[in-house]
Design a protein around this nucleic acid. Structure first.
Length: 466
RNA sequence: GGCGCUAUCGCCAAGUGGUAAGGCCGGAGCCUGCAAAGCUUCUAUCCCCAGUUCAAAUCUGGGUGGCGCCUCCA
C-alpha cells in the first residue's frame, strides 16, 4: 500500500520496519471535555488506516494515548470541585461511547498518561544525563532544542523564524525560545509526582514519546515505530518536539512515516476550543446515526480540510441509504464468502493512500450492478451471494452496513410513532385491497406528514424515515 | 513576516502527462392504480495568462481567489 508522508511530502510505498508487524501510534484526546467532530474525523481516519493495514495481512499494534493529567484538566476539576479522576473518568467513558457510535474499533493499546509517569521520568533523566535537557530554578525541566541538530526537520521550519515569530510566552530561564517543558515543577500542593529532579507534572509533549518507547519500540532499526499520526495542527510544535526528544533520548527517529489528517470546519469556519464553536459528536448523534456521520466524515480525502455542513451530510446519507436498500433487498440470506473482483478493487483503492472517493464509487457501482441484475432476474442466486459477500467486505473494511437494514431506516423514531405508522399502513393496505385509492392516498399523505416514506413491494409495504 | 495547502459540472468530490470517476440535485423514460424504491438516459474541458510537450485539468512561470500552521487544539 501507499501512504502520503507529511514530513517528506510525498506518497510512499509502505514497508514495515519489522516484517509483517506494524506499529501505529496516534495522538488521542485530552479527556476534559466532550469529543467534537475533529476528534471524530481523526479517529475515523486512523480507524480506517488500521482496518486497511489489517486487510493487507499485517499484524498491527495500534496505540492511542489518553491524556488524563494536564493543566486544563486540573483547572476544570477545580472549577467543578471534583477530583481529577472523576473528571477524566467521566470524559473518557463519554469519549469511548462516542467512538463506539461511530464504529471506531478500539486500538490495541490505550495507555493513559498517569500510568506512564515512570516511562516519562526515565526519558527525562536520559535527556538530562545526555545534556539535552536542563533544570531551572523552579524545578522546570526544559528540552534544549539547540542540542538537536535535526530540530525542525519534521515541520520544515527554520530556527530564526521560530525565534522571532514565536508567540509563546518566553520564560527568562529558557536557553532558546523554542525550548519546551518536559517537566513542570510544582511548588504548591496541587497534583504532582515526586522525581529525582523535583516535584512536578509532565509537560505537554513528553507522554507520547515515553509511551511509544514503553509500548511500541522496535529493536533493530533506525526508526522506533512505523506510523505516527494525528491532526494536521499537531505537526508543529507537538510532533516536532516529540520527534526531537525521542531522537535525543533513543538515538532513533521516532517514526518512519508521518500521517496527518486535515481539519473539520463548520459551515466554513474553523472549529476550535478557543473559538468556542466546537460541534460535539454527541449533539450530531441526536439527529443522525453514528454510521451516517462516519460515512460522511470519511467521504473525502483525509488530508484535505473537511467542511462540515448539514446539506452535505444529508446528501451523503442518501448515498449510504442505497447500500442499506440493497441490504434490505437481500435480507435474511446467509453470508457465504465469495471471491470477487469488487473486493480486490476496493482494497486496491484504499491501498492508494486511502482513496475513499474511489472506494465509494466502487461501492455505488457494485450496488447498481446488483440492482440491475436483480431487476432482470430476481432469483439470481449467484449475484445475491456475491453481493452479500461484497457488502460484508465493505462492513469489515469501511464499517458501513453494521446496522440491521430495517432499524437503519427507523433511526430516531419512537416506539409510539412506529406503531402509529404501522397502523396507518395496515389501514392503507385494506383500502388498497378494496381499490379505494382515494382513501389509500390520503392515508399515505398522513404517513408522509410523520416524516416517513413508504414503498409497496412484493413483500408488502415497507417504510423509511425520510 | 515565515512555512504550507488549495481552486474540477448548481452542490459534494476523484483523477496529477494520453484526451474529465462517483454521489446529491434537476430533466426524460421504464416499472407502479398513483407513488416510493430500483433501472435506463441527459447535463462540465478542469480560476486567469503565458510556456514546455506529438499530447496538460495534470509539468513550469506569473497572476487572482480561498484556506491553514507558526498559541491550547484532532
Amino acid at each position: 500500500m501507499y501512504i502520503f508522508d507529511s514530513v517528506k511530502k510525498e506518497k510512499l510505498l509502505f514497508t514495515p520496519i519489522d516484517g509483517n508487524n506494524v506499529t501505529l501510534y496516534v495522538c488521542g484526546p485530552t479527556v476534559y471535555d466532550d469529543a467534537h467532530l475533529g476528534h471524530a474525523k481523526s479517529s475515523l481516519v486512523f480507524d480506517l488506516l488500521y482496518r486497511v493495514l489489517e486487510a493487507n495481512g499485517y499484524s498491527v499494534t495500534y496505540a492511542k494515548n489518553i491524556t488524563d493529567i494536564d493543566d486544563k484538566i486540573i483547572k476544570k476539576a477545580t472549577e467543578l470541585n471534583i477530583t481529577i479522576d472523576e473528571l477524566t473518568s467521566k470524559y473518557l467513558s463519554a469519549y469511548n461511547k462516542d467512538m463506539d457510535s461511530l464504529g471506531v474499533k478500539r486500538p490495541t493499546l490505550e495507555p493513559k498518561a498517569t500510568e506512564s509517569i515512570e516511562a516519562m521520568i526515565d526519558m527525562i533523566q536520559k535527556l538530562i544525563d545526555s545534556n539535552h535537557a536542563y533544570i531551572t530554578s523552579t524545578d522546570d525541566v526544559y528540552f534544549d532544542t539547540s542540542s538537536d541538530n535535526k530540530y525542525l526537520s519534521i515541520s520544515n521550519r527554520h530556527q530564526d523564524e521560530s525565534d522571532t515569530m514565536s508567540r509563546v510566552e518566553s520564560s527568562s530561564e529558557k536557553k532558546n525560545s523554542t525550548d519546551f517543558a518536559l517537566w513542570k515543577g510544582v511548588s504548591d500542593d496541587s497534583v504532582a509526582y515526586e522525581t529525582p529532579f523535583g516535584k512536578g507534572r509532565p509537560g505537554w509533549h513528553l507522554e507520547c514519546s515515553a509511551m511509544i518507547e514503553k509500548h511500541l519500540k522496535s529493536e533493530n532499526s533506525e526508526y522506533t515505530i512505523d506510523i505516527h499520526g494525528g491532526g494536521a495542527d499537531l505537526l508543529f510544535p507537538h510532533h516536532e518536539n516529540e520527534a526531537a526528544q525521542s531522537r535525543c533520548a533513543t538515538k532513533k527517529e521516532l517514526a518512519k512515516y508521518w500521517v496527518h489528517n486535515g481539519f473539520v470546519n463548520i459551515d466554513g469556519e474553523k472549529m476550535s476550543k478557543s473559538l468556542g464553536n466546537s460541534f460535539f459528536i454527541k449533539d450530531a448523534l441526536k439527529s443522525y446515526s453514528g454510521e451516517v456521520l462516519r460515512f460522511y466524515l470519511l467521504s473525502t480525502n483525509y488530508r484535505a480540510n473537511f467542511n462540515f455542513n448539514e446539506e452535505d451530510l444529508i446528501a451523503s446519507k442518501k448515498r449510504l441509504d442505497k447500500l442499506y436498500r440493497l441490504k434490505k433487498r437481500l435480507y435474511g440470506m446467509k453470508i457465504v464468502d465469495e471471491k470477487t473482483t469488487f473486493k480486490a478493487e476496493l482494497l486496491e483503492a484504499l491501498n492508494d493512500d486511502l482513496n475513499v472517493s474511489k472506494a465509494y464509487a466502487l461501492i455505488d457501482e457494485m450496488i447498481s450492478t446488483t440492482n440491475e441484475v436483480l431487476d432482470a432476474n430476481p432469483k439470481d442466486k449467484l449475484i445475491k451471494r456475491q453481493s452479500l459477500s461484497n457488502m460484508e467486505y465493505v462492513r469489515e473494511l469501511l464499517g458501513f452496513g453494521e446496522y440491521d437494514a430495517y432499524e437503519y431506516f427507523q433511526f430516531g423514531i419512537s416506539e409510539d410513532k412506529k406503531s402509529e405508522i404501522e397502523s396507518l399502513i395496515a389501514q392503507r393496505s385494506e383500502a388498497k385491497k378494496e381499490k379505494n385509492f382515494e382513501l389509500s392516498d390520503s392515508l399515505r399523505d398522513q404517513i408522509s406528514e410523520l416524516g416517513v416514506s413508504i414503498m409497496d413491494t412484493a413483500n408488502g409495504t415497507l417504510w423509511e424515515n425520510s
